[in-house]
Design a protein around this nucleic acid. Sequence first.
DNA 1: CGCGGTATTGACCAGTTGGTCAGAATAATA
DNA 2: TATTATTCTGACCAACTGGTCAATACCGCG
Lengths: 199, 199
Amino acid sequence: MRRKRIPEHLRREQILQAAFAVACREGIGGLTVRGVALEAGISHTLVLFHFGRKKRLVLELLDWLIAGTAVLHISEDVASFPHARDRLHALLHQEMARLARQPEHTRLFLEFWALGARHGEIRSRISAELERYRTAFRAIMEELLLSEPSAFVTATADGLAGVAVSWIHGCAVQATIDPVHFDSDEYLAAVRGMIGQLG
Amino acid sequence: MRRKRIPEHLRREQILQAAFAVACREGIGGLTVRGVALEAGISHTLVLFHFGRKKRLVLELLDWLIAGTAVLHISEDVASFPHARDRLHALLHQEMARLARQPEHTRLFLEFWALGARHGEIRSRISAELERYRTAFRAIMEELLLSEPSAFVTATADGLAGVAVSWIHGCAVQATIDPVHFDSDEYLAAVRGMIGQLG
DNA sequence: CGCGGTATTGACCAGTTGGTCAGAATAATA
DNA sequence: TATTATTCTGACCAACTGGTCAATACCGCG
């Protein structure tokens, strides 16, 4: 059999891509060392050679997924709105669009969330990601509270950020389970109604 | 070895309880026919005798879980509030409390959601449950729109119900992954701020 | 009591899994 | 070309999986 010799970082990248493909197709529960190897066209021993154990492969897949997902990047379009409310709305809109545009990513993350409930090493990564997410929203919420102090009397920026994160992830659940009943425009309109009408 | 003979429905119930215990401890991915049998103190063949296949055991566990979880029951306390806003708030509060009170249930449901993304038979059950959930909220949202037509100009009852469901489930994710940073009171206060101050 | 149906069991099977290991193919170096 | 370090492979293993099956212990019924 022909053998190719490839620099380590490329092999690892190739294996991670194969792992991603398998995980998308079969789910993380259906991800096996041999399945990944087959997808990558190499022997299963080589996968173990580069990643040691399956557990580490899964963890590195999660890292790879997190690193490759441009989450909550505040684009110029979003930043250009003068009012905090408009920026918040644009940001929510953008995140919803991303969820819809990358359904496999969303599904995979959902699986990792579930796994995280039981596996500390996964949970810590997800937890850090949630914190990143919350932080991004917290900034905009602080501005919102400053600009309209009377509108949200009982609320804090932390609480509002948490609500925004909850909402996005709850949408992710509904969108993957029940795409038919999930109408992002309608949901966005409802949120717009809740935080007050935009100009 | 001693054998006990038990009426069918009791045996099934016993096995389902054992399956629940195993699923809580090991996750659905770690649920095996033999593990359930061990937990129930019977042979693994008997589990298969009563449920035919593992797949059906898992599905019936989900049904059992859904049937045994009193979700979104509108108590007298909640119904007694005259204003729709107060009832909504009380309902959200009640659901949040339930999520915190039954963390194992919440974790298990999270796993089933993730599984539902790939398994149609699970998805249809989860989807129906989501619809039940949405319906319960829709009623109260319709009242809210009627009582305060100017407050949520662009919103529909469907949209608002979906947002409420999203929010609850997003909270479930954050609460199971990141219980330390999850402060339900603060989140509730933020929502209260969003939908306007209560009387 | 004996008898028939059925709940229950242990033995068994084929397939898959993660993981190890000795050794072969490759590339770099001397 | 010979040496050496590293990547890569096939064969192998023990553990576990879901599932089948014949045999058996139990029960109600005659």
